[in-house]
Amino acid sequence: MPFTDSGEVDFIGFDRLLGHLIASGVHGLTLFGIASEFHKLTDVEKQELAERFVARTKASDVFSMISVTDHSLEVAVKRAKHYEKLGADCLMVLPPYFLNPPIRAVKEHILAVLAAVNIPVLIQYAPAETKVGIAVEELVAIYDQFPRAMFKIEANPPIDYISQLLARRPEATVLVGYAGLYMLEVLDIGGKGVMPGCSFAEIYLSIYHDYVAGKPEARQNHKRLLNYITRWMQDCEYIIQVEKTVLRKRGIIDGDYCRRPSYPLSNEDEESIMEFLRQFTLPCKYNK
């Protein structure tokens, strides 16, 4: 989410970022994921961003997904209906986690969002970030009731969990997040794709296409990428700041401000980012 140096949403930068990502060849874009700093946005800002997001993606071949992050079931249902009416191709739902609700309430929340709309809904399972654990059997039960449910698994590591889910429902659509740390392992066991951040999407695309083509470069380049993202994914605020700084250095957005609380980068981080840009030959307009 681009912000000005004073902390205001940079809507022009947002539009420019969307244009860059659409031109890069990504298959889909998601708004209001954790990397979007959804928890630091006002409702007024979210409304304008959602309208811009849908308008821009509708004019392209890119699949649009908007995340429903409200903790109240009633509000989440209203939000889901609104985003569907707005024109989103799909929704993502972040299960409620504030004050540690019981699994019964979490499951009820997810099912209510699915029942409220007719478009696919991606269930985001991020136990490290939300501190909410959901057993595989619970996701299977949700899928059996709503086969248009899809899953984004961000457990760390996710392989055992995804393997159990796909063993029970091999036809289910399962994606992996977590900056793509386990991208190739998940594809190996039947996952359908990766949902990383957006500052170096071209690298993920290249790895994905090489993987589909059976080229060894997929694993070679993913291994090179791991040298950086393994460190950056130690903290969500850390990689959000890194990704935003990468976007600024590439000249895609004007500033790398993160609304506070945020994760200030060290000189070592800045040097690592420059090394990363050079190693993957990503265009860089600014060295500072």
Rank of each mutant, 00 (worst) to 15 (best):
P264D: 14
F151Q: 07
F38A: 13
Q234S: 08
M274G: 10
V246C: 14
P147C: 08
G13L: 02
F14R: 07
Y143I: 12
F98S: 09
I34Q: 10
V77A: 10
I34G: 10
G13V: 07
F38N: 11
V62S: 02
V132S: 00
D210G: 06
R56P: 10
K249I: 09
N221I: 09
F98D: 03
G7H: 01
Y208Q: 07
P2R: 06
Q241P: 07
L21C: 01
A59R: 12
S60W: 07
S206G: 12
N100S: 13
E275N: 13
E202R: 03
T69G: 05
D188P: 00
Y83H: 15
D10I: 10
K81R: 15
K107S: 10
F14Q: 08
M195Y: 03
V136P: 07
T230L: 10
R231Q: 14
L86V: 07
F146C: 00
A201S: 11
P127V: 13
Y238L: 13
L91K: 00
E51L: 13
C258D: 01
V75L: 12
D61W: 06
Q47T: 11
L21F: 03
V246P: 13
N221A: 10
N227M: 05
V194C: 11
L73S: 15
N227T: 10
A201F: 01
L122S: 00
M183K: 08
V140N: 00
S72I: 07
L226N: 09
F98K: 11
L139S: 02
